[in-house]
Write a protein that binds this DNA or RNA. Structure first.
Lengths: 330, 330
DNA sequence: ATGAAAGCGCTAACAA
DNA sequence: TTGTTAGCGCTTTCAT
């Protein structure tokens, strides 16, 4: 690995001049500059980021925390983050926290040590105690998808709207008995979807007693399958299903098929907050699609903005638009 | 951020003693040790990895290159990598190369600069020129899923076997006309699947002229849909489909349904090289499942082994077993 | 426009 | 056992 020292020697200049050539080329004589650059290229020189970082320079690196990297929404977000990272010359360090707050904390501590300039977090909990510490400590933090109640920068989808729209579609299609299959309310995006569902139903004149929201304790395929199964077994009659996630949508489709219920003739289905895949199923499912990739891109743009800004910016929340895609399930 | 200097001052010892307390505690007096550690804890001290790295210490960081982070196989691999990374105290830097060799090269150059101790790569091309350079340069490289022809460490699924098994299942179920829907042969795992398909067919006495392998130029859902569609439109008669990937499986299912073909009565289907999701579809699909997460774990274990080993280890290829899961599509 | 030199936080060889 | 010191590669003030 060549260093500025090598270049300096070969170019007959001081190491400071070499450093200047890379950082403030206007301060070095053109001839010297060219000589230095030529030699640098020949040697395949690249500045050592460790040394630069030690000297206080930004490392152009941001840490990313996700609960489960293989859930489509997070994979999409990471992809988006990577897109703008590349565009802006940043690197990305990823950690899969497995939704474990302890792990999350350990990771943040590890990263905080100067090695990242900023952090993007899809947190385990609605609010984590270290968020504020972090943004006070000078290293910017932005929350992706999961907003905090505290004053922290965040990029989110408008899940209330998303689910409100989805529910409205079903109602406008003539559904009389719409059930809502949701995830745990402790997770903010699910809680928000619930709000949207309730809002849409009330507006159409349904009383609270008529609301059928099933906020399952987890949103996995297998557990959802079980629950929907038991719903049908109990003879509940529904002609519309608003569903919170892709896995749950697949579970519903499967259940329905096994019980000979046709989509959309017997039951209409819409996914509120899906990510692409449900359009590829045997029966193409309508969806209010949450643009993970866009969320990732926006999050990254925001951290970079925070990192590179001279003065502290006021925290803000960026809302990313969802897209309604109507397919054969409605 | 506290440094060893601060601790040294407060503990009335030299900075070297503090450093020793952290790195070779046996060389420092117990009383001093305790004093130092107590103060370190109070100050929330953490060693600055940049300084350590600059001094030549390993950064405990590995770079990961994937072509598309949101394809299930790669998401799984990254998850596996993260699993063992956490267990061993390593960090992971991820880059989505978008299957662009140029991008890949840039990224490797960037990483090579001392900041990572090793690289795991799911490469764009069957062979990249820098692979050998890299392993010669002293920073270990392991290939995940895509093996090279050159002598490089790699972790791979046995795709030949995988597809051989899948094809054999269909044949043993009495299929007379089995078609193979595959991806581009320029991508090694697809080429290997092709070998497995051909092998199984030949063993059952099919002549080369009877082999129906469709090695599509890309394996996306939409393109595959188009191709399978045209196959059916041309009136090709098949009663079995061996399919190389999840997206293609979904495409096939959809096509078949639209043409009133029933699975498995009219056509039997098996996915050779899927990753979980096809078991959750309306018609649960049999699959020879490639364990992405395990591949990730094994890759990471191998790089760490290479990183931490004193002497150069001989490159080896680790084969990860696939699992056959029979469901209703066969 | 360029050089000399200090120092970022840490480790390790050498001295005491 | 502990302290002194050099130096990793780089940036940046202060001289020249």
């Amino acid at each position: 690995m060549a260093t500025i020292k090598d270049i300096a020697r070969l170019a007959n200049v001081n190491i400071a001049t070499v450093s200047r050539a890379f950082n403030r080329k206007e301060m070095v004589a053109p001839e010297a500059y060219n000589r230095i650059m030529k030699i640098a290229k020949e040697l395949g020189y690249n500045p050592n980021p460790l040394a630069q970082g030690l000297k206080g320079k930004k490392m152009k690196m941001v840490g990313v925390l996700v609960p489960e990297i293989d859930h489509s929404i997070f994979a999409g977000i990471i992809k988006g983050i990577g897109n703008t990272a590349r565009r802006k010359g940043y690197s990305v360090i990823v950690c899969n926290t497995g939704d474990d707050p302890e792990e999350e904390k350990r990771f943040v501590e590890k990263l905080t040590n100067k090695i990242v300039d900023g952090i993007i977090c899809s947190a385990a909990l609605p609010d984590s105690p270290y968020w504020e510490d972090l943004s006070n400590s000078g290293i910017p933090l932005v929350l992706a998808v999961r907003q905090g109640t505290k004053k922290v920068d965040s990029v989110a989808a408008d899940y209330i709207r998303t689910c409100y729209d989805a529910t409205s579609i079903l109602l406008s299609r003539g559904c009389k008995s719409v059930y809502f299959i949701n995830g745990p309310l402790t997770v903010k995006p699910y809680a928000q979807r619930n709000v949207g569902f309730v809002k849409a139903m009330r507006e159409k004149g349904f009383s609270d007693a008529e609301l059928r929201a099933f906020n399952l304790k987890d949103s996995t395929y297998s557990y959802s399958l079980e629950c929907i199964e038991s719903l049908i077994a109990q003879g509940k009659a529904f002609d519309g299903l608003v569903i919170a996630s892709d896995a749950q949508t697949m579970a519903a489709l499967r259940c329905l098929k096994q019980h000979g219920l046709r989509v959309p003739e017997d039951v209409k289905i819409i996914d509120c907050g899906g990510h692409g895949i449900v359009g590829m199923l045997e029966t193409a499912v309508s969806v209010v699609e949450v643009p993970g990739e866009k969320i990732g891109e926006a999050s990254m743009e925001r951290v970079i903005e925070l990192i590179e800004s001279k003065d502290k910016l006021d925290p803000k929340t960026i809302l990313v638009e969802s897209e309604l895609i109507l397919r054969e399930s409605t």
